[in-house]
């Protein structure tokens, strides 16, 4: 069984998680509240088992390292390095997992439809949809470029520092520009940017699960804020 959530619920989730991520947790209770919010259970519901498992291990390790081995007195290069990375993982990972979940499980059509229902201007909707769709493409292209570089036997920058950036960024830009042209040709032939109002095949409707999740996330936000700032 897979749970189909309304994109608006997902956007709300992103909003709440980002807000909470910015306020750091100080007590174990707050940590617990924060960990509950990570939508790993949602990933499992949507059958992204591998990703759920990966995130779980990754986050768990970072948490363990942060609490067990590192304190405010840690010094030296290696520990500063570790502290930095673990800190950042522990701090921002919930937001990243949520964003990953939303990007992976929302179809672009659904997303655009939801944005339209919330009366967001078309320009922002379309651009944002392209951004969402484009991250996996960039990753793919980048892998291809790295393979090509390996074939030619060029490691890092082939000797000069500027080359490190140039050899990677320029081919990436070339392919992205080409993909962009194809994408806009495809989109325009399908009527994007036409004068008529866009209709959608999918009917978006808030279901019980959506309201339940929204309620849960609101509750989490309230609990977090109250126990951090008021008590």
């Amino acid at each position: 069984m897979s749970l189909k959530l309304d994109p608006r619920t997902k956007l709300y989730m992103i909003f709440v998680v980002s807000a909470v991520v910015m306020m750091s947790a100080t007590t174990p209770f707050l940590w617990a509240v924060r960990i509950i919010m990570i939508p790993i259970f949602l990933l499992i519901m949507e059958k992204h088992y591998a990703a759920a498992f990966r995130f779980l291990i990754f986050y768990g390790t970072a948490l363990l390292l942060t609490f067990k081995f590192l304190s405010e007195n840690s010094e030296g290069f290696l520990s500063a390095f570790l502290v930095g990375y673990c800190g950042i993982i522990v701090q921002f990972m919930p937001a990243m997992i949520t964003a990953w979940y939303v990007v992976r499980t929302t179809k672009i059509g659904e997303f655009v439809c939801a944005m339209q229902k919330m009366h967001i201007p078309d320009g922002i909707t379309i651009s944002l949809a392209v951004v969402m769709r484009f991250f996996p493409t960039i990753k793919e292209e980048y892998t291809a470029i790295r393979d090509a570089m390996k074939m030619r036997g060029i490691m890092l920058g082939g000797g000069n520092a500027a080359g490190m950036i140039e050899y990677r960024l320029i081919p990436l830009l070339f392919s992205c520009v080409n993909i962009g042209d194809e994408l806009s040709a495809a989109a325009v032939t399908r009527g994007l940017g036409g004068k008529v109002k866009r209709t959608s095949v999918q009917e978006l409707k808030m279901k019980a699960a959506d309201y339940l999740l929204m309620l849960l996330f609101t509750a989490v936000l309230v609990v977090f804020v109250v126990s951090k700032y008021i008590r």
């Binding site: 078309d122 484009f134 806009s184």
Partner: peptide, 9 residues
């Protein structure tokens, strides 16, 4: 529409 796609990319 083409401009919006360029912006996104």
């Amino acid at each position: 529409a083409k401009d919006f796609i360029t912006i996104g990319i």
